[in-house]
Amino acid sequence: MQTSSTNSSSFRHVREWVFDLDNTLYPHHSNLFSQIDQRMTGYVSELLQLPREEARRVQKDFYLRYGTTLKGLMEHHGVDPDDFLEKVHDIDYSWVDPDPALGAAIRDLPGRKFIFTNGDKGHAERTARQLGILDHFDDIFDVVAADLVPKPASESYDKFRALYRVDCTRAAMFEDLARNLVVPKELGMTTILVVPNNFEPTFAEIWESDRQRGDVDHVTDDLAGFLRGVAQSL
């Protein structure tokens, strides 16, 4: 494991760059995902006719058990995924500031670049466009393309790598959740955990709070700076 510094040998082999979206490509402090989170609570509350506090408990229970709230709602209540995804992603994207430094860093990486998200493609496109980085990606693999099977389920990664013929031994994956890096690491990817800037808890505390943690190769709280270091080392 390393922090934001990189060594030149770690990424020389990488030609496939895979990025989670929420709280990874945009900074955690932008709080964009809080809008989605609140809309999910409201959706569960309206669907099940529950007070918001109880609806939130149901929402988080489904998230922990199924990987996404949507998966739990589909399993137990037959929710239309298109309706859910449209409503929870009806948010204000201006909360995210454009990040030209991140765009330049992604652009300078050799090989293909993908967004791999448990959200939908429209949300990923709007977010990446607001960041000013959309044009630097070859494609977006969303939860719909994964047949609504979210990370960290191995089936989701299998569909991703089969669709794009990804050589995992030449791939790197960036995520804000360690449990979503377990399968990529097993497949041979280089794994990078992205944590919030100036994160107060120690790395050990982050590690211990993640119920399905894996062997992460690198940790950074500055994605653009980390990628600049990678590009300079290649």
Results as ranks from 00 to 15, higher is better:
114 F>S: 13
112 R>W: 12
113 K>E: 09
140 I>P: 02
140 I>H: 05
115 I>E: 08
134 L>M: 05
118 N>G: 04
112 R>L: 11
112 R>H: 14
139 D>L: 06
119 G>P: 08
143 V>F: 01
121 K>F: 04
143 V>G: 14
135 D>K: 05
112 R>N: 11
113 K>T: 10
135 D>Y: 02
143 V>N: 07
117 T>N: 12
136 H>M: 13
124 A>Q: 01
122 G>Q: 10
117 T>F: 05
129 R>L: 08
141 F>L: 12
123 H>S: 09
135 D>V: 05
146 A>R: 02
147 D>R: 10
140 I>F: 01
139 D>P: 03
131 L>E: 02
118 N>W: 08
121 K>R: 14
144 V>C: 09
111 G>C: 08
123 H>E: 12
110 P>E: 13
110 P>K: 15
130 Q>T: 10
128 A>G: 07
111 G>I: 14
138 D>E: 13
129 R>G: 13
125 E>M: 15
115 I>D: 07
136 H>E: 15
141 F>K: 10
115 I>F: 10
111 G>S: 10
143 V>L: 03
113 K>D: 07
134 L>H: 11
135 D>E: 15
144 V>F: 15
117 T>L: 10
128 A>Q: 02
128 A>R: 03
147 D>S: 04
116 F>A: 04
131 L>Y: 01
140 I>L: 01
121 K>V: 12
115 I>A: 07
147 D>E: 14
141 F>C: 04
144 V>T: 08
113 K>S: 03
137 F>I: 12
121 K>M: 10
114 F>D: 13
120 D>R: 00
132 G>P: 11
122 G>K: 03
114 F>T: 12
133 I>R: 09
140 I>M: 04
130 Q>W: 02
116 F>P: 01
139 D>M: 10
122 G>Y: 00
136 H>A: 05
111 G>K: 09
128 A>F: 00
125 E>A: 15
132 G>D: 06
147 D>Q: 06
121 K>T: 14
120 D>K: 00
146 A>W: 01
114 F>H: 13
124 A>R: 00
147 D>A: 09
133 I>F: 00
117 T>G: 11
144 V>N: 08
110 P>R: 14
118 N>E: 09
113 K>W: 07
135 D>C: 10
121 K>W: 01
117 T>R: 05
131 L>P: 02
137 F>H: 06
114 F>R: 00
127 T>M: 03
120 D>C: 12
116 F>S: 05
126 R>T: 05
126 R>A: 08
128 A>Y: 00
138 D>K: 08
119 G>S: 15
125 E>N: 07
134 L>S: 04
147 D>T: 02
130 Q>M: 03
124 A>D: 07
133 I>T: 11
134 L>I: 11
133 I>K: 05
